[in-house]
Structures are given as structure tokens and as C-alpha cells.
Amino acid sequence: MADAQLMKGILEGCVLALVAKGETYGYEILSELVRHGFEDLGEGTLYPVLTRLDKNGLISCRKAKSPYGPIRKYYSVTDEGKKYLEEFLQSYGKITACANSVLEER
């Protein structure tokens, strides 16, 4: 449960950071997250995050046909998303620094 709560906010920032690197799609984002160690993360968790980011205007979505047939959504970051990512990185840096300081003194 603690993992899930921790993950919720962080994942949104990580996904946004991956999309900010350049236009990408669901599978690519999932593979990148797995490569970085988010082993147990499935599409079930990622998909609502992408939908939420899109709904909030932080990423935009272009629909085009994938080489496998279905329509694929290609995501790219919006200006609002870039701004949000900056704010997220600052907040995240501050929070992790504080948390590390507390946890190291344990």
C-alpha cells in the first residue's frame, strides 16, 4: 500500500519526463520504465496515468496507424507539461533531499 501511494505521484512525473524526451507511445514508455527498474509496473497502471496527463493538458496525443494495425496514440509534451515538469523536478528534489536527510539520521 505504501508503495502504491509513493508510486502514484512519482510515476506521473517519470512518465512526463519520458514523454518530454520526444514523441513516444505506450509500449515504448512501458519498456523504458521497466528498463529503469519499475519491474512490476504494468499497462494497467500506466494507461490511467497517460489518460490523466492528457486530460490535464500536460501531454498531447496524436493518433496514427501502428505497424501492427491498430490506431496508436503518440504522445508529446505540451508547454504546460514542460512547465509542470520543471515544477515537479524542483518539488521532487526538495522532498527527496528532506526525506534522505531524515532517513539517514535514523
Binding site: 505506450g26 509500449y27 512501458l30 494507461y47 501502428s66 501492427y68 494495425g69 496508436r72
Partner: peptide, 17 residues
């Protein structure tokens, strides 16, 4: 939604994930 899932699974199937 189902199309998004189908694309994800088709890509995983092709790439061996």
C-alpha cells in the same frame, strides 16, 4: 481503450515481452 490495449499487446508479442 481496447484498441490501445491491442496495440500494446501486439507490440509486446512482436518484441517478445
Amino acid at each position: 481503450i481496447m484498441m490501445d490495449l491491442a496495440d500494446m499487446l501486439l507490440t509486446a508479442q512482436d518484441k517478445g515481452m
